[in-house]
Design a binder for these strands. Structure first.
Length: 244
DNA sequence: CGCTTTTGACCCGCGC
DNA sequence: GCGCGGGTCAAAAGCG
């Protein structure tokens, strides 16, 4: 099962728009939310993947940061939390949070990341790993947060933008596997030492690009060109939502 | 040999 | 002012 749950919140000029989509193993259930305050969801809608039209809207409560659904969950939102990097402290640089809950728990975003730190958080119940882009002078960073008691739950926080294109793969397959998220590769490395890794199920691929375009179309009606722009930013960062 | 990971130490912001 | 927690640094070790 390769569910994808994407939530995106934006905050520009004191306005927040959000959209969310789920791909329940290609079921492509899509939800669109709009909110007026940070992290608060006011409206939620659904798209029928066949009709490509809204199915219904319903009010929802405040989004919990960490939902407990046992499925792959990807969340993208802006964050106002300060970053220790001085340049990022002053600027409210958008951060993108991807929360994944899956067996594979990896997010291959196409970039090469280098781990530069790891912290035990909240009484060792969480392990947060810190990665930066391997490309020199690239400001892109990401934090991979993983529960020690639930290794299948991973929260990835992206900060900063890549100032370069995705590195060209030398070999399609090899590079793809090589470019699997460092969190996964880290764990893989550990698993190599401890236990054997069960072979990955080749899950079907599904592109989100069309969904993002759909979101942009809908949001444009809401006066959310910023949303589309940020969605493009998201894509430019290189997040690959294709389940593997 | 070059790149990545590991890990303890250090820095800094924030709350009390 | 102090302590705590989060983020980063940097050296050593590991790996391909």
């Amino acid at each position: 099962m390769a569910d994808i749950h994407l939530c995106m919140c934006l905050n520009q000029n004191n306005r927040v728009q959000a959209f969310q989509m789920e791909m329940l193993d290609l079921g492509l259930k899509t939800e669109v939310m709009m909110s007026q305050s940070r992290n608060e969801t006011l409206v939620q809608g659904q798209w029928d993947p066949n009709k490509m039209a809204p199915v219904g809207f319903a009010s929802t409560g405040v989004q919990e940061k960490h939902a407990a659904e046992p499925r792959l969950k990807i969340r993208i939102k802006e964050r106002s939390a300060p970053c220790s990097v001085p340049a990022l402290k002053t600027k409210k640089e958008p951060e993108i949070i991807i929360h994944t809950v899956s067996d594979e728990g990896s997010s291959n975003d196409g970039y090469r990341w280098r781990k530069y730190g790891q912290k035990m958080l909240k009484g060792n119940s969480l392990v947060r790993s810190y990665y930066r882009c391997s490309s020199s002078a690239c400001p892109a960073r990401k934090h991979v947060e993983r529960a020690t008691d639930d290794a299948t739950s991973t929260t990835i926080t992206y900060a900063g933008k890549h100032d370069h294109d995705k590195p060209a793969p030398k070999k399609m397959q090899c590079s793809e596997s090589r470019l699997i998220s460092p969190a996964a590769s880290t764990d893989d490395a550990r698993r190599k030492k401890n236990i054997s890794v069960s072979s990955r199920k080749p899950s079907s691929r599904c592109s989100v690009d069309g969904e993002v375009d759909l979101m942009g179309e809908k949001l444009s009606k809401l006066g959310a060109e910023q949303a589309l722009e940020s969605a493009q930013t998201l894509l430019s960062i290189g997040i690959d939502l294709r389940p593997r």
